[in-house]
């Protein structure tokens, strides 16, 4: 798979409100950041998967953005094992370990993964 194919597949998956990720067929490692090579075993035998969109807050920090709004910048660990930077949309403080689900938002015409806390 060429990198350009991976990126365009990611974009269309996100547009369809799903979260894509990469899985190495050789070593089963899953990862999110778009490479056409497995960063673990360096195999090029990769497949693009779709996540169920459920995960856990691995770490989170609250800060004020340029518009002085509170925002929760986070690392999310998806149930499929990979992690990514994202933002947890919440008015309340978010704790590490909180279960979250995917919420795709459109920014400047492109779709990106955000997360919201799951109601227990």
């Amino acid at each position: 798979m060429r990198l350009s194919e991976i990126i365009s597949s990611y974009k269309s998956t996100l547009m369809a409100k799903k979260l894509p990720f990469l899985r190495c067929r050789a070593c089963s490692y899953t990862f999110y950041y778009t490479r056409d090579i497995c960063p673990h075993c360096h195999s090029r035998d990769l497949e693009i998967m779709e996540s169920k969109g459920l995960g856990t807050v691995f770490s989170v920090t609250t800060l004020l953005n340029k518009e002085k709004q509170r925002t929760n910048y986070a690392i999310i660990e998806l149930d499929e094992g990979f992690r990514l930077y994202s933002t947890v949309i919440s008015d309340k403080p978010v704790e590490i370990g909180t279960r979250v689900s995917l919420k795709i938002l459109e920014i400047d015409g492109s779709s990106y993964p955000f997360f919201v806390a799951l109601k227990n």
Binding site: Y32, Y33, N65, K66, Y85, I107, Y112
Partner: peptide
């Protein structure tokens, strides 16, 4: 190499 997919989030 992955800015396109994560630099949209507000961070410091």
């Amino acid at each position: 190499p992955f800015d396109w997919i994560y630099r949209i989030y507000d961070s410091l």
